[in-house]
Design a protein around this nucleic acid. Sequence first.
DNA 1: AATATCCTCAACCAAATGGTTGAACATAGA
DNA 2: TCTATGTTCAACCATTTGGTTGAGGATATT
Lengths: 109, 109
Amino acid sequence: MVEHRLDDVFQALGHPTRRAMLTDLAARERTVGQLAEPFAISFAAASKHVKVLERAGLLERTVIGRTHVCHLAPEPIEEAYRWLGRYERFWQERLDALEAELRREHDAS
Amino acid sequence: MVEHRLDDVFQALGHPTRRAMLTDLAARERTVGQLAEPFAISFAAASKHVKVLERAGLLERTVIGRTHVCHLAPEPIEEAYRWLGRYERFWQERLDALEAELRREHDAS
DNA sequence: AATATCCTCAACCAAATGGTTGAACATAGA
DNA sequence: TCTATGTTCAACCATTTGGTTGAGGATATT
């Protein structure tokens, strides 16, 4: 079931440290150490975050010698994006309606 | 900070029951009881899920007498969608590059 | 007024999460 | 071979999460 992975993906995205790591990885490949560096947490804690991202399929790891090089993986975020996209249309309609209403109220005043 | 809300939004999306509730709400307004009905959990548990969605701003509640009518709220999912959109572009480029490379390899063989 | 309905709250529980520290492992460099 | 480096693992801790049950509040219904 595809739905199962969405649990992991959205949950992984639900922590600012992990989102920052993804942002970092969007620019270039990063070792676990490099990913950990910006944060005031222990190396082991950062390593756990990396593992969460990996379990969600958002990140893939290539072990080169003693360093682990990480890069983004495309599929799961695509899934999440498409899931949200189903609602995006709905919400866009609502936003348009809201905007129109506010405009009406403003014009009436 | 906008980032703070994204924590709540993604975390709220990270549970299948809550995503199913949102799917339900996309079709029409629902009372808490109606939202709870499809799930084999206690009413109180469902009520907690609703509260999580509400805290994330994904759902708004209108109390009418003793019933609480819920509807989707547009803004936070828009935020999440846009956040993912930044990476969607990135990943799409990667996918395109990958596809192009595969095509090249195929043509060369 | 009595009762049924819709929902929240409080207390509790087990499991997951996010953090720590210390040890261990594998590899690179002296 | 010895040591330094990059990373994981294990044990532990506090907090959060997702569930339960039982009680209670507010509103409809009779």
